[in-house]
Amino acid sequence: MQDQINSIKEKVATLIKNAVHSKELEEIRINFLGKKGEFTTLLKSLGSISAEMRPKIGAMVNEAKAKIEKDLEKAVADLKRKELDLQFEKEKIDVTLPGRKPQIGTAHPLTIIQNEIEDIFLGLGFSIEEGPEIDTDFNTFQALNFQDDHPARDAQDTLYVNKDILFRTHTSPVQARTMQKMHPEPVRIICPGRVFRRDAIDPTHSPQFHQIEGLLVDRDVKFSDLMGILEIFAKKLFGNDRKIRLRPSFFPFTEPSAEVDVSCIFCNGKGCSFCKGSGWLEVLGSGAVHPNVLRMGGYDPEEFTGYAFGMGLERITELIYQINDIRYFFENDVRFLKQFK
């Protein structure tokens, strides 16, 4: 009986050793450990053995079964691993091949910078106002203190639809409209938008461009408050090291008026080719709203003061991204557009 057990053990060990497929191991399990397997048969014949030998033989059988079970388990695991290895080898890929990229959309550079500027002013408590691109001569010029037949009108060669209606030359009519709508409540707005002028297109001129203007109307606001706002704006948009410098200027709708320079974002004021050695970049026009403009907006200039500022979005975007030709913005070459991620 003991010999019989040992010979089965040996036989099984050989079979396991030679098995090359998990199916063969399953057969081994069925043939030797299954309900009709050799050990079961062997155990059934225990009855023919002496009672005193029976527990000993039984233990031997169980021990052998346990060992085979363990060996089988190990063999199955080994084989499975081998099979997986084989399968993986078949599925081997070149990880250096390029990935499959999902199509990603990009925002226009002018939109990116416009959003940044809007966010800065939203943070300063400004809201955003928009107005029509085609507006009246009244809102565009007269309400902004441009007198008829004054040389100041020459600076903005206007695209007229008829004598009263025009393609707006600046976003300032939105200021006029907002004042007419809001008075006598205080105003704190920016107005971004598209503007038009009769200009031939070249690297620095375009008959269409964008402006962002700001307007603050309240009691007791001072010129120095305007400077504070513009300084924060310059630092937040161009970096905390930036300084601003104001130069007196003239706009019909503001008095006093100022051009606002920001210390050069490339050389930080030392002087370079971008700032033509001056250390400063001209980025904004600004000033105190002319009392005539306030009056036409419905505010009493003795009670209210206003401050306004304006900038060219293309100019600022060109500075930030070092774009050297305004035409890129409206040609929409995708090789240009995809650069602004």
């Binding site: 943070g123 408590g125 809201s127 955003i128 704190r188 408050d225 410098r245």
Partner: peptide
């Protein structure tokens, strides 16, 4: 102009985008 010291006039309200914006 640049001898004038900037001052800060806080807003009395928050700036938010309109529903359309």
């Amino acid at each position: 102009y640049n001898k004038i010291k900037p001052t800060y006039y806080p807003s009395k309200t928050a700036g938010v985008r309109t529903a359309e914006q």
